[in-house]
């Protein structure tokens, strides 16, 4: 049995190398795929099971959020983009995926306190399962997205969507995985993180070009005076993701033309950066893991 080898000898001291930890985590994840699948299924079963509308909420949630922003922007009189509902929906969908996963991830290890104290299992499967469970919500969001696209037939480019949406989503998955692993381990030691997280996420959303586009920022006087702001905004992973999603779902940044393929270079850079980020997050997690049972 696989567990025998891992448990055979446990010395007290000896600091494992980062590379060793990384290799260990990867073998843990691949050997416990079944456990990850069960955890994801359990998560699915629970979500929405105690509400009247049940799983309908997966579809309703992003739509309602879009309406809220629509009202907000209309009141502020800032809606300068044509077909604005589609414009913001292209960002709301991926953002809901990310923010839901991160807030779930902050409790994914802490929630399993009793199991962690009772049986030895690789804890890394917990944030991996949380991140994967988030994919289902994202996929469910495709339903209202396509409904919305049918209302804007001139912006509906199925071939572009089928090719590019999965690719952009993979980049986002990798980045989200790194963030989820980081947050899940850190929250064991600092419970305040959960409190701060909601506010941090909201700030991040407004700093990301979700309700606006990077090109629109260029016209702001504050950006004209301080071009550094624009440069910094471009480094935001969600600037890259939102602009890419919007490019294939909606069209050019200011909405003059229909969907076009996104600029691949920022996506490739983000993917490579995210892979390094995941590796670092795994090492961070694995270094803290032996103390989970003591601290929880």
């Amino acid at each position: 049995m696989s567990r025998t080898d891992a448990l055979a000898f446990r010395p007290a001291s000896g600091r494992p190398t980062s590379l060793g930890l990384l290799r260990e985590a990867i073998s843990e994840i691949s050997s416990r795929r079944r456990l990850i699948r069960y955890l994801v299924q359990g998560e699915m079963k629970k979500r929405g099971s105690d509400t009247v509308l049940g799983n309908i909420w997966w579809i309703l949630d992003p739509v309602l959020q879009m309406l809220v922003y629509l009202v907000l922007v209309t009141i502020l009189g800032r809606g300068r983009f044509p077909d604005y509902p589609l414009f913001i929906f292209a960002a709301i969908l991926p953002w809901k995926w990310f923010s839901a996963v991160i807030s779930d991830a902050s409790t994914t290890v802490v929630r399993q306190e009793r199991l962690i104290k009772q049986i030895a299992f690789p804890k890394i499967v917990l944030p991996v399962a949380t991140t994967s469970a988030g994919v289902v919500g994202f996929v469910a969001g495709m339903v209202p997205l396509f409904a919305l696209l049918l209302l804007h037939p001139d912006r509906f480019n199925p071939i572009l969507l089928v090719i590019w949406l999965p690719l952009i989503a993979i980049v986002q998955y990798v980045f989200t995985l790194g963030a989820a692993i980081l947050v899940s381990a850190a929250n064991v030691f600092f419970r305040d993180l959960g409190n701060a997280l909601g506010h941090g996420l909201r700030l991040w959303w407004f700093l990301s070009p979700g309700l606006y586009s990077l090109a629109w920022m260029d016209e702001l006087s504050i950006v004209k005076e301080n071009p550094i702001i624009r440069t910094l905004a471009g480094f935001n992973p969600f600037a890259v993701l939102f602009e890419s999603y919007r490019s294939v779902i909606y069209g050019s940044p200011l909405g003059e033309t229909g969907p076009i393929p996104p600029d691949p270079l920022p996506l490739v850079v983000l993917l490579l950066g995210s892979i390094v980020f995941v590796a670092l997050a795994i090492v961070f997690f694995k270094r803290l893991e032996p103390n989970f049972a003591k601290v929880l």
Binding site: A6, L7, F9, R10, P11, A12, S13, I116, K117, Q118, I119, A120, P290, A293, K294
Partner: peptide, 9 residues
């Protein structure tokens, strides 16, 4: 194997 020893083996 839930907890790692601080010393000894």
């Amino acid at each position: 194997g839930i907890m790692r020893p601080t010393e000894g083996r």
